[in-house]
């Protein structure tokens, strides 16, 4: 029946204003950092005498910040590739398989998303020391890849679920080898899921802090770790500048996806569980 909610069925008015207040609460800290980032002082405050882009320049000129930016990219790119390799292999292999074993494996693949970060921290602190990869680039990449794995699995299996179940059989009845069937018929259909998985894995690594704090020391200083260290000294406005840039990038991405109607699936959580 075409019902256009004629009269409020419940105390809807109250719910609407509460809902709006919650959304304001959610974006409040994000909005607050914008004026802080233009502060003209070296400590955190609202701008005094005028606006300044000082802290945006410091981000790229001060060695500590510049190096951590480069390190973060250097870790996140290979980590995301590795996560994609493992996650995609699993999803393709497990596609259309049923049974408790597959279900268990799927849940295990999501483990790095579900298990609290502190447990990973304790585990990898021991494990990486044991094999001599503590505070190493390789060890950090490996751990970040594992943390990004669940997002690859989630987005790839989401896009696999809309692929016709007989795709592989069909390709093979048309003469393709098993590998050709995968490569030429299945992968093209799930390219958006793959792209989304890669982006989420990258962002996960880019954001990772809890485990990184426990598996690195002087050698590896990623951007979040640099932020963390700077917070011990004072509330440096550089962090506000960084956050504003991240906000800008996110808004642009949101805008782009909603304008292009892109099929990139937005999963709720690109973040690790703090």
């Amino acid at each position: 029946m075409s019902a256009s909610s004629p009269r409020s069925l419940h105390p809807t008015r109250l719910a609407e204003s509460t809902g709006r207040a919650v959304v304001v609460f959610l974006v409040l800290p994000l909005v607050a950092i914008i004026p802080m980032s233009f502060s003209d002082t070296r400590y955190l405050s609202m701008p005094h005498d005028g606006l300044s882009t000082l802290h945006y320049w410091r981000l790229f000129s001060e060695p500590a910040w510049r190096d951590s930016l480069l390190q973060s990219v250097g870790v996140a790119l290979p980590a995301a590739c590795l996560a994609l390799l493992i996650g995609l292999s699993f999803c393709l292999g497990a596609w259309q398989r049923q049974g408790n074993m597959v279900r268990l494996l799927q849940i295990l693949m999501l483990g790095p998303l579900i298990v609290p970060g502190i447990i990973h921290a304790v585990a990898y602190h021991r494990a990486l020391s044991f094999i001599g990869l503590f505070d190493s680039f390789a060890g950090t990449v490996l751990v970040h890849a594992i943390k990004g794995l669940p997002f690859v699995v989630l987005s790839v299996s989401a896009s696999l679920s809309s692929v016709h179940p007989a795709t592989l059989q069909l390709a093979r009845s048309l003469g393709a080898s098993p590998a050709q069937a995968l490569w030429r018929t299945l992968l093209p259909q799930i390219r958006y899921g793959i792209a989304a998985g890669f982006i989420f894995a990258f962002v996960t690594s880019w954001d990772e802090i809890v485990v990184t704090l426990f598996i690195t020391s002087r050698n590896v200083i990623t951007l979040p770790k640099q932020i963390w260290q700077s917070l011990f000294l004072n509330l440096d406005p550089v962090v506000a500048a960084l956050g504003s840039l991240a906000l800008l990038a996110t808004l642009l991405a949101l805008l782009a996806t909603s304008l292009s109607g892109s099929r990139l699936r937005s999963l709720p959580s690109p973040n690790t569980i703090a």
Binding site: M1, S2, A3, S4, P6, R7
Partner: peptide, 13 residues
């Protein structure tokens, strides 16, 4: 038709 029915039922004004 459904619109008329919704008005009779009180789902729409």
């Amino acid at each position: 038709k459904s619109t008329l029915l919704a008005i009779l039922a009180g789902f729409a004004e």
